[in-house]
């Protein structure tokens, strides 16, 4: 068993099949406080499948996943409470405003003050759009709001699937700063991205999938 903090997340010999495709072939890695893990690989190599496995949506056929030394299957809700997941979809209701969306998404975990949500939206550069219907936002703004949800989740483990999609240069910079900050505060982030990452002052490691 791993000690509580030396390896907060540990994947041991993960094998995952999707239909007849053997996506993960004995993948093992660990991630501890302050680690950033950049998952790389060509299209269709299973980056999303890996993140969905780490989020607990997919169950590996073999191998196991440990969070703070315990198998995640023992306490799925406890593990979910410790993680924040950003998928391909932004998980926002088009008919609700960013503020409303974030309130429902965040309050279900921790009661959060309106001011806190507003300041996070400001930080990610979508403060002025907070009361517009989500559908009225541009694709890049939507991604920023979705990232605000991750930030507000108060989770140690961030699983970000292509977080930089649709973002402009400023957006990439803002988001990178947020992720680097998270790591500096002892958080863990596992993310997929096609481009090289520029995350100042953080321990960035690579996980190559073939």
């Amino acid at each position: 068993m791993a000690e509580t903090d030396s390896a907060a997340l540990e994947a041991r010999d993960l094998h995952l099949w999707r239909g007849s495709k053997h996506v993960l072939r004995g993948l093992s890695f660990t991630a501890s406080a302050g680690h950033l893990l950049h998952v790389r690989g060509p299209n269709g190599c299973g980056k999303t499948s890996l993140l969905r496995t780490l989020a607990g949506f997919l169950w590996p056929e073999e191998g196991a996943l440990y969070w703070e030394g315990r198998p995640v299957t023992e306490d799925r809700d406890g593990y979910a409470a410790a993680l924040a997941y950003l998928g391909h979809e932004n998980a926002m209701k088009a008919d609700l405003s960013p503020l409303e969306n974030l309130r429902y998404a965040t309050d279900v975990r921790h009661p959060t003050e309106r001011r806190t949500i507003e300041s996070v939206l400001e930080r990610l550069g979508v403060g002025p759009q907070r009361d517009l219907p989500f559908r009225a936002l541009s694709a890049g703004q939507r991604r920023r709001v979705a990232m605000a949800r991750v930030l507000l989740a108060r989770a140690r483990l961030w699983l970000l699937d292509e977080p930089f999609t649709n973002l402009d240069v400023a957006g990439v910079r803002d988001l990178s700063a947020v992720v680097a900050d998270h790591a500096r505060q002892g958080g863990i982030a596992i993310l997929t991205a096609h481009s090289e990452l520029d995350l100042p002052g953080s321990e960035l490691r690579r996980l190559e999938l073939e």
């Binding site: 989020a55 607990g56 949506f57 809700d77 406890g78 979910a80 409470a81 410790a82 993680l83 924040a84 997941y85 998928g87 391909h88 979809e89 932004n90 998980a91 926002m92 209701k93 088009a94 998404a105 279900v108 975990r109 949800r149």
Partner: peptide, 19 residues
């Protein structure tokens, strides 16, 4: 399911059946 909020519901950390 389509907009991804169902995924988030299962990851809320609260008991899914209750939600």
């Amino acid at each position: 399911l389509e907009d991804g909020t169902l995924e988030q519901l299962t990851l809320s950390g609260q008991p899914l059946a209750w939600l």
